[in-house]
Simulated scan of single mutants.
Amino acid sequence: MKGVRLPQRRVEALLAEADVRPGGERDWDLQVHDQRLYARLLARGSLGLGESYMDGWWDARALDELLVRLLRAGLERRVHGIGEIRDVLLARLANPQSPRRSREVARRHYDLGNDLYAAMLGRRMVYSCGYWRQAADLDAAQEAKLDLVCRKLGLRPGMRVLDIGCGWGEALEYAARRYGIEGVGVTISAEQAGHARRLCAGLPVEIRLQDYRELDEPFDAVFSIGMFEHVGVRNYREYFEVVRRCLVARADAGPGLFLLHSIGGNASVRRTDPWIARYIFPNSMLPSAAQVTAACEGLFVIEDWHNFGADYDRTLQAWRDNIEAAWARLDARYDERFRRMWRFYLAGAMATFRCRRSQLWQIVLSPHGVPGGYLATR
């Protein structure tokens, strides 16, 4: 009996450091439904935390606030499962974002179903952080973000623009209608490509099912919104080389600017959280500022670096509200275990941004430097 209770005592002591009490009355307190939880957490770390929530072994009324407290206490650095050790070794020995492996995230995440994303993302199917500076709701924040991208790049009629990782086509559709550009969007998701082609029908926009590494043609401007998180540190340099060879500077079209919109981390890593890697974004990782600058050194001048990561917490809360209101009308394939997985994913993402563990960067780069200097847009 003493051996059975030892894991519980150890976990309760760790949780106390985060001001979390099993069975407590506060919204962020852990409600344990299965006593096997304690041993599972010690054996499998963050992977066990997420999996046990999916299995219904525990709950918390304010899941995001519980995860905030665990992160602020740094408990994920105190408990490591065997799977995390394996992931570290694989990240060092292999290239998880090779052309063959990179398509796994499309199959397992972006191709889940357009109905799911349409219900969650709002009127514009934009799966990245909104810009809430003057916005009162999600749709306004997403439109403000798209307009911010266009203004930072100085888009104007007749420019040929590339979108690397074009998602469901919203950014190119917006740029073509509002700024009169011609565009090419590439994605490795068949579901996204099909939707984007329908959305952009009748516009001078081409949507391709294509890996970014295959690109080699001229564009006046390039942007990439929420795709760099899938590139991987082994491929950062090649990614920037691809952009560099595609950008041209023309007297009538500007200096050839590239805007990178990406989540970023505060420290350099070579892998992602094991639960995220297994259930949400396989083969993903968040870049650090050091990794970004090293990868683009000698290729680009960094003209502007804009961090509005705090806006992502608000964006995620809006997505959570949308999807929670929609579950009843969605397809039965999104069963209860899937719903719990999705709730844990959104709550965990909120927690990382609320703790400022994760950032949201918009970085503007030019091949040779903007003559006279770049005027930053906010």
Results as ranks from 00 to 15, higher is better:
residue 61 R to T: 11
residue 124 R to S: 14
residue 318 A to I: 12
residue 57 W to A: 12
residue 305 W to A: 03
residue 60 A to T: 14
residue 359 Q to I: 13
residue 51 E to H: 05
residue 59 D to V: 04
residue 369 G to P: 06
residue 21 R to W: 10
residue 55 D to Y: 08
residue 333 R to G: 10
residue 327 W to C: 08
residue 89 L to V: 15
residue 174 Y to N: 00
residue 276 I to F: 11
residue 366 S to D: 05
residue 193 A to W: 09
residue 105 V to K: 05
residue 77 R to P: 02
residue 271 R to P: 04
residue 335 D to E: 08
residue 245 R to P: 08
residue 233 V to Y: 01
residue 286 L to I: 00
residue 145 K to M: 08
residue 311 D to G: 02
residue 294 A to N: 08
residue 48 G to N: 09
residue 223 F to I: 00
residue 368 H to L: 14
residue 303 E to Y: 02
residue 211 D to P: 01
residue 324 E to K: 00
residue 109 H to C: 09
residue 80 H to W: 14
residue 14 L to A: 12
residue 73 A to T: 01
residue 257 L to Y: 06
residue 255 P to I: 13
residue 34 D to L: 09
residue 204 P to F: 04
residue 195 H to K: 07
residue 369 G to R: 09
residue 318 A to N: 08
residue 209 L to V: 12
residue 60 A to V: 04
residue 119 A to I: 09
residue 122 G to S: 02
residue 156 R to S: 15
residue 259 L to R: 10
residue 61 R to E: 10
residue 322 N to R: 05
residue 357 R to D: 13
residue 29 D to P: 11
residue 49 L to G: 07
residue 310 A to I: 13
residue 371 P to G: 01
residue 46 S to D: 14
residue 108 R to G: 02
residue 322 N to K: 00
residue 353 F to L: 11
residue 137 D to C: 14
residue 43 A to S: 11
residue 42 L to Y: 04
residue 58 W to S: 06
residue 16 A to T: 13
residue 26 R to N: 10
residue 317 Q to K: 15
residue 116 L to Y: 13
residue 286 L to C: 07
residue 83 G to N: 15
residue 179 Y to I: 06
residue 179 Y to Q: 03
residue 226 G to V: 12
residue 103 R to W: 04
residue 208 R to Q: 11
residue 258 F to N: 09
residue 225 I to Q: 10
